[in-house]
Simulated scan of single mutants.
Amino acid sequence: MNTLRRLAVPGGWTAALAVGLVIPFLVSDYDLLDLSRVLTIAMAVAGLNLLLGHSGQISVGHGAVFGLGGYAALVAVTKSGWPWVPAVLLAGALCLVFGLLIGGLALRMGGANLGLLTIAVAAVFPLVIIRMKSTTGGTFGLSLAHPGIQPPAGTGLTPAQFGFLVCLLVLALTLLLLRNLVTGTSGRALAAVRTSPLLAAANGVNVTRVKLTAFAVSAAVAGIGGALYALALAIAVPDSYQITLSITLLAASVVGGSRTWAGALVGAAIVVYLPTAAENVVSGDSSGNWAQLVYACGLVLCLILAPTGLAGGFTLLLARVARTTDSPSAPAHLPVEKEVR
């Protein structure tokens, strides 16, 4: 049974990847666009999971990092004529450097200043984008005539199908990278820093380097997700990257489960499909407010009923069931006293 349990997780991810490779040929291009949004937002949430669930840090500015990646990719494509692959790589590298700068500054300031600094970044980012009108298009943003991720000639795939497959494979590689980062020596260092930075430092862990690396990698992952998001939608506007996006991503990480990579997908699906569900229930302009109310209620209920998130709670439930199944029952003929002993 223990062997089956160890094989269940990689087997489940392999099955999910196989299903994902088939989905583009079963649903419409419109549905694929929403699914691509789920995959790209899941990258940003996965980056937050590394930060929040595995290093004990908090960021309320990942929406700005997500937007920085999107704008960097679209500027490279629209202004410089770059292909989408180097544009995505540029976005990831730029967000990595941005993460190093912001993380380093916050660590120098000490205390809880990372969270405060990222709030400021999230609030200022849309204003900076609007001010840089000649590069970013101001309030109108940047747009492409067609999706930025185009399939190679002769594949027979539509842009929506190819874009979804690219986002799926990039997310799979991202989750594999993050999983490897939180295991082994680096994983033990992250766990020690999350549990007690002072105790970790006493045991020879470079706390500053571990925290800075986690934040920089988290920012790079969010930037790549933002680049693919903007290229898949073929547009980036400042209103899409308000501070509410950062709060929503943080809520998605908590509700989905900040200690599980499956929680990133669960949280991203909530971010994408909850507003649509709210619009189906409540028509008109008030639907957006109802969606925010459901976010808040879901977050509170999750903190009360499933502190480890929806995916984390489901995993714990399966583990509890497996332990119950594995535990041998006491022989029926023994007296009650001996069974207790």
Rank of each mutant, 00 (worst) to 15 (best):
residue 1 M to F: 13
residue 2 N to M: 11
residue 4 L to T: 04
residue 9 V to Q: 10
residue 9 V to I: 14
residue 11 G to N: 08
residue 12 G to I: 13
residue 20 G to R: 07
residue 22 V to I: 15
residue 23 I to A: 14
residue 24 P to Q: 11
residue 28 S to G: 13
residue 28 S to E: 07
residue 29 D to Q: 03
residue 30 Y to T: 01
residue 32 L to V: 03
residue 35 L to A: 15
residue 37 R to N: 11
residue 38 V to D: 15
residue 43 M to D: 11
residue 43 M to N: 08
residue 48 L to W: 09
residue 49 N to K: 08
residue 50 L to G: 10
residue 50 L to H: 08
residue 50 L to E: 10
residue 50 L to S: 07
residue 65 V to N: 03
residue 72 A to R: 01
residue 75 V to H: 06
residue 78 T to C: 06
residue 81 G to I: 09
residue 82 W to T: 04
residue 85 V to Q: 08
residue 89 L to G: 05
residue 90 L to Q: 13
residue 93 A to C: 04
residue 94 L to H: 02
residue 99 G to L: 10
residue 100 L to F: 15
residue 103 G to R: 00
residue 108 R to H: 10
residue 114 L to Y: 04
residue 115 G to A: 12
residue 116 L to E: 02
residue 116 L to N: 05
residue 119 I to C: 02
residue 121 V to N: 03
residue 123 A to F: 12
residue 125 F to M: 05
residue 130 I to R: 12
residue 130 I to M: 14
residue 130 I to E: 12
residue 133 K to P: 04
residue 133 K to V: 08
residue 135 T to N: 03
residue 138 G to I: 07
residue 139 T to E: 15
residue 140 F to P: 00
residue 144 L to Y: 09
residue 145 A to V: 06
residue 145 A to E: 05
residue 149 I to K: 12
residue 154 G to A: 13
residue 159 P to W: 14
residue 167 C to K: 02
residue 168 L to G: 01
residue 178 L to W: 00
residue 180 N to G: 11
residue 182 V to S: 13
residue 184 G to P: 01
residue 190 L to Q: 05
residue 192 A to H: 03
residue 194 R to I: 02
residue 195 T to W: 04
residue 196 S to I: 00
residue 196 S to Q: 06
residue 200 A to Y: 08
residue 201 A to W: 04
residue 216 A to G: 00
residue 218 S to E: 00
residue 220 A to S: 14
residue 227 A to M: 02
residue 234 A to T: 12
residue 238 P to A: 13
residue 239 D to S: 14
residue 241 Y to M: 09
residue 241 Y to H: 13
residue 243 I to S: 08
residue 243 I to E: 04
residue 248 T to H: 06
residue 248 T to G: 11
residue 256 G to M: 13
residue 264 A to W: 09
residue 266 V to G: 10
residue 269 A to L: 13
residue 272 V to C: 07
residue 275 P to A: 08
residue 277 A to F: 08
residue 280 N to L: 14
residue 281 V to A: 12
residue 295 Y to H: 08
residue 298 G to L: 11
residue 303 L to H: 05
residue 304 I to Q: 02
residue 318 L to Q: 06
residue 319 A to S: 05
residue 322 A to N: 01
residue 322 A to I: 00
residue 327 S to H: 07
residue 328 P to N: 04
residue 329 S to D: 04
residue 330 A to T: 05
